Simulated assay, not measured.
Amino acid sequence: MTSALGLLMILVAYLFGSISSAVLICRVFGLDDPRLRGSGNPGTTNVYRLGGPLPAGLTLLFDVLKGMIPVWSAYFLGLSPMVLGLVAVAACLGHIYPLYFHFQGGKAVATALGAMFPVAFEMALMLIATWIVVFWVSRVSSLAALITVSLAPLYAYLVKPQYTVPAFMLSALIIWRHRANIVRLWQGKESGFRS
């Protein structure tokens, strides 16, 4: 029963994560498709570039909720930390490879952050603080995201050790999704405000 419920929640998380907040919000505000303009990434930073703070803020909110709601539901249902980690990864995979949007998604940073709120609120606050500090110093969104997610397993170990492995799974996924950004950072070609 528990395994079947876990598989169901993983599937639900992927389908929920597949709802592209950036694309839908840009349509509502009459903006260009974020997959075709700016950085080409359907995420908060690119939506900000295209439409300003209001659509970007709504994109951020809904991307966070895409991770938070499935994990909170799984946590409420009493599923194990490992299953919670898989639910979180599934939500992020939905964001990265959205079923409803030709599998052209974003980087899943906000979705991963939302997935961490239900199980480790202190950790989520530590991650937010890290992102703000790194972005304030560097003005490069991708660098802030990479450093933040790299520290997630350490923060999990310090706050709730049972979630260290799930945090590592999320970190590995997001770092892999940022591999093109890593190359540009290494080459010194990564521009500010790029997600």
Rank of each mutant, 00 (worst) to 15 (best):
M68R: 08
W186Q: 14
R184S: 07
N46A: 05
V47L: 09
V87T: 10
L50M: 00
I147L: 15
T44A: 14
G85D: 06
G30I: 13
T130V: 13
S39L: 01
S18L: 04
F121M: 07
A110S: 15
V89M: 11
G94W: 05
S138H: 13
T44H: 05
P53G: 01
R49V: 01
T164G: 13
A112M: 03
V47G: 10
A152C: 10
L5H: 06
G43Q: 08
P98T: 04
G114N: 05
S3G: 00
S80F: 09
L15K: 13
A108I: 05
V159P: 03
L125V: 13
I147P: 10
K66D: 05
W72Y: 14
I175T: 11
L143E: 02
V165S: 12
L31V: 09
G52Q: 08
P81F: 08
I25C: 08
R27G: 03
E122Y: 09
G40K: 04
L54Q: 09
T2A: 15
S142D: 12
F103A: 12
V83G: 12
G114Y: 03
A145K: 12
T2D: 13
N46F: 05
F103M: 07
P98M: 11
M116W: 11
A56P: 08
S39Q: 07
D63E: 08
P161H: 12
A115C: 00
T164C: 11
Q104A: 00
G38I: 03
R27Y: 02
W131D: 04
I175M: 14
P55Q: 06
L127Q: 07
T45G: 14
G51P: 04
A13S: 02
W72E: 03
A112E: 03
L7Q: 02
Q104N: 09
L146V: 11
R35G: 08
G85T: 08
G114E: 05
F135C: 09
V140G: 04
A124K: 00
M126A: 12
A56N: 11
M9C: 13
V87M: 01
M116N: 04
F16G: 02
A74R: 12
M9P: 03
S18Y: 08
P166W: 10
R139A: 10
A91G: 03
I147W: 10
V47S: 11
S39N: 09
L58H: 02
N41K: 06
L99R: 13
L61A: 11
H178Q: 06
E122F: 02
V64E: 05
S195N: 15
F193M: 11
A180T: 14
R49D: 07
A88C: 06
H102K: 15
N41L: 06
L31Y: 05
Y100W: 15
A74Y: 08
S150L: 15
T59R: 02
A112F: 04
D32R: 14
Q162L: 09
Y75S: 05
V87N: 07
L58P: 00
V83W: 13
L24W: 02
L127W: 01
G43H: 07
H178D: 04
F135E: 00
A124C: 08
L24K: 11
I175E: 04
G105V: 00
M9G: 04
G85N: 07
A90D: 04
V134P: 11
G17D: 06
A74N: 10
A124P: 07
G40D: 02
L58R: 08
V87P: 08
A144T: 04
S150P: 09
G188N: 14
